[in-house]
């Protein structure tokens, strides 16, 4: 797979094949987008801030975490923790996008790097699935990615608009929407018993540091300590087996 530009008709057929293949996963992207948009209004983001964050950051988990840190008064906005949290939540993309390397020839590195901006977990998974069957092209990835990007933009803005209908969120129990959403997102990440140790350690570390340290550092502390414990426990288990 080192050939350079595909003929135009082949590019467009791959592009649309990618978009079509991603329809099921984009439906879930749209649902997450709506929820995020509603919560973003509750957290105090303006419509412009929603458009900028969805359009420029385009990373669901990191955007959900950002809402928890967000502050309506600009002076108390935790800029450092927001950027650091995005960095930590998105570090996994190092591993994901590294596996897409075979899609790009040696002279296509710049094109490939720019395309990575529209890669998400969902479209990455679909493209890797194609690649494992011996298919999968850069155009396929781009088609799915652009489709997911457009849906994310549209549904987050729609959610933000719908959120205007709801006044005084606490009265309707909507303050709990954050916790409920994070809990459902967490449960959706469950891949097996290997997740138990990092999640429990993260929860404990977060509870303790939330009591001891002012502000939202508990999210980063729990995230780093918990994932470290997960890696440690995997090493211990592998050592047992050998």
């Amino acid at each position: 797979m080192t050939e350079t530009a595909l003929p135009t008709h082949q590019f467009s057929s791959q592009f649309f094949a990618g978009a079509r293949a991603c329809i099921p996963v984009v439906i879930s992207v749209a649902a997450y987008g709506l929820v995020w948009g509603v919560l973003a209004r509750g957290a105090g983001l303006s419509a412009l801030e929603v458009i900028l964050m969805s359009g420029l950051v385009f990373a669901g988990s990191a955007q959900f975490v950002a809402l928890d840190l967000w502050s309506q008064t600009p002076a108390s906005l935790p800029i450092g923790p927001l950027i650091l949290a995005a960095l930590i939540v998105n570090l996994r993309y190092l591993l994901l996008t590294a596996t897409l390397r075979p899609l790009y020839g040696p002279h296509e590195q710049l094109k490939g790097a720019l395309t990575m901006a529209i890669v998400s977990d969902e479209t990455w998974a679909m493209t890797i699935g194609e690649m494992s069957k011996g298919r999968g092209t850069a155009a396929f990835l781009l088609g799915g990615g652009v489709f997911a990007y457009v849906c994310w933009m549209a549904t987050t803005v729609l959610g933000h608009t719908l959120g205007a209908i709801i006044d005084n969120p606490v009265r309707y129990g909507l303050d709990f929407a954050f916790t409920a959403t994070f809990l459902a997102l967490l449960l959706g990440m469950w891949k097996g018993k290997a997740d138990l140790v990092p999640w429990l350690v993260a929860a404990l570390a977060a509870i303790v540091s939330a009591k001891l340290i002012e502000g939202s550092w508990y999210i980063l502390i729990g995230g780093l300590v918990g994932s470290f414990a997960g890696a440690l426990s995997e090493r211990v288990r592998h050592a047992d087996q050998s």
Binding site: S61, V65, V89, P198, G223, G226, G230
Partner: peptide, 8 residues
């Protein structure tokens, strides 16, 4: 393990 730990 980072995303799951952050969510937890």
């Amino acid at each position: 393990h980072m995303p799951g730990a952050v969510m937890a």
